[in-house]
C-alpha cells in the first residue's frame, strides 16, 4: 500500500513533503480516518492539524560526549518515537566518506541515532552510503557498540530514475532506491566549508543519495569543464533535488568542522561541540553556516531552498532550544 502511494503519486508526494513529513502524514491520515469513522466532525481537528507545531523547532546540545549530546537533542524534539514508528525501515543519509578531521559526521552521532531507532522499534536501519571499518576506527567508543554496528544494513546503490516535474533545472535524477523505499529518512550532515558552494549541510547532503551520472549532470551539464563552473546551476540542482522527499529528521554534526579546504580538508577547525537536531532543513543550514561565521543569505543552496519554501531562513522566528551537557 505504501509503495503504491510512493510510486504512483510521486507528484503528490513531493507536494506533501513540503509541508509534512511522511510519518506525520501517516499518523494524521490514520487520525483523520478514525475521526471520520467515529463520526466526529473533522473541521476542528483539521484546524488543530494546521496549527500543530512541534514544541521545539530545533534542539542544540553542546558537550564533549557526542553520543549523549545526540540522544539529548532528539529527546528535546520529543524523542525518536516522534519520527520512527514500530517495524519501520529507517534510512540514514550520513556524510561519512571523508577521512580528515572535521569533514565527516562523527561515528558517535551515528551510533546514537542507530541506538535510538532500534529502541523506537525500527525493523531495519540502513545507510545510503557505505560505512567501512575506517569510519568506525575514527571513534574510540565504536568497539563498545557492536550490536548497533552489526544491525546496520547497506541501502545504497541500486539507482532508479526519478522525475522532478517541479524542478527548475533538474527534471530527472538517479536516486538510490533505498532512499526512496525507506519509511523514515534521517539526514545526517556535517556543517562544514565547501570550496565550490561555500557551505555544505542539510540541503546539500541530499546529493549523497544520487548516482555518479546525476552527480556529473549537476556539475557539467551546462558545458563547464570544471566542477564549479556554473554554481548557479549546481545550487539550483541541489535545491531541486530536495523536492524529492523531505527527510523526517535532520541531525547535524556541529562538533568540530573545517572552515576552509572543504569538503575534503584538512583545514582549520572550529570546535563548537554542538549536535543540532530539527526538521527544518533551511533553518538547520542557517544555524550551521553561522557556526562557520557565514550568514544563511550568503549560501546559494540555502537561498534557493528558502525560495522554494522549504524552511525558515530567519532563526529568530523559530523556537530553538539550546542546552549544555
Amino acid at each position: 500500500m505504501r509503495k503504491d502511494w510512493k510510486t504512483q503519486y510521486p507528484h503528490l508526494r513531493n507536494l506533501i513533503s513540503e509541508s509534512i513529513n511522511r510519518r506525520t502524514f501517516i499518523k494524521k491520515s490514520t487520525f483523520l480516518g478514525a475521526s471520520t469513522i467515529l463520526g466526529v466532525s473533522s473541521a476542528g481537528w483539521m484546524q488543530n492539524l494546521a496549527l500543530a507545531k512541534p514544541k521545539v523547532d530545533m534542539a542544540v546540545v553542546q558537550g564533549l560526549d557526542y553520543y549523549q549530546s545526540t540522544m539529548k537533542a532528539v529527546q528535546m524534539l520529543g524523542g525518536m518515537d516522534e519520527f520512527v514508528f514500530r517495524q519501520s525501515k529507517v534510512g540514514l543519509l550520513i556524510n561519512s566518506p571523508w577521512l580528515n578531521p572535521g569533514c565527516y559526521t562523527k561515528p558517535e552521532i551515528t551510533l546514537a541515532v542507530v541506538r535510538m531507532c532500534l529502541d523506537a522499534g525500527a525493523k531495519e536501519v540502513g545507510v545510503i552510503k557505505k560505512l567501512d571499518d575506517s569510519y568506525w576506527r575514527r571513534s574510540q567508543i565504536s568497539e563498545r557498540f557492536r550490536e548497533e554496528r552489526e544491525s546496520i544494513r547497506f541501502m545504497g546503490g541500486n539507482f532508479t530514475e526519478v522525475s522532478f516535474p517541479h524542478g527548475q533545472v533538474l527534471k530527472k535524477a538517479e536516486i538510490a532506491k533505498g532512499m526512496l523505499d525507506c519509511d523514515v529518512l534521517i539526514n545526517m550532515p556535517i556543517a562544514k566549508h565547501h570550496d565550490g558552494v561555500r557551505f555544505t549541510g542539510a540541503v546539500k547532503n541530499m546529493m549523497g543519495g544520487q548516482s555518479r551520472k546525476t552527480h556529473r549532470f549537476f556539475h557539467f551539464s551546462t558545458g563547464g569543464s570544471g566542477y564549479y563552473d556554473d554554481i548557479e546551476f549546481l545550487t539550483q540542482c541541489i535545491a531541486d533535488l530536495n523536492l524529492l522527499r523531505k527527510p523526517d529528521l535532520y541531525i547535524m554534526d556541529g562538533t568540530e568542522m573545517i572552515t576552509e579546504n572543504g569538503p575534503f580538508g584538512p583545514g582549520r577547525l572550529v570546535k563548537h561541540q554542538k549536535v543540532i537536531a530539527g526538521t527544518d532543513r533551511v533553518a538547520m543550514d542557517v544555524y550551521g553556516a553561522n557556526l562557520l561565521g557565514l550568514e544563511g543569505e550568503e549560501i546559494l543552496t540555502t537561498q534557493k531552498a528558502y525560495a522554494y519554501g522549504m524552511g525558515e531562513i530567519n532563526l529568530s522566528s523559530l523556537h530553538i532550544q539550546e542546552t549544555t551537557l
Binding site: 570550496d195 565550490g196 570544471g226 566542477y227 564549479y228 579546504n261 569538503p263
Partner: peptide, 11 residues
C-alpha cells in the same frame, strides 16, 4: 579520491 575537492587542484 576527493570528488569535487579535486577541481581546485586541477585549476
Amino acid at each position: 579520491m576527493i570528488n569535487g575537492g579535486a577541481d581546485i587542484y586541477h585549476e
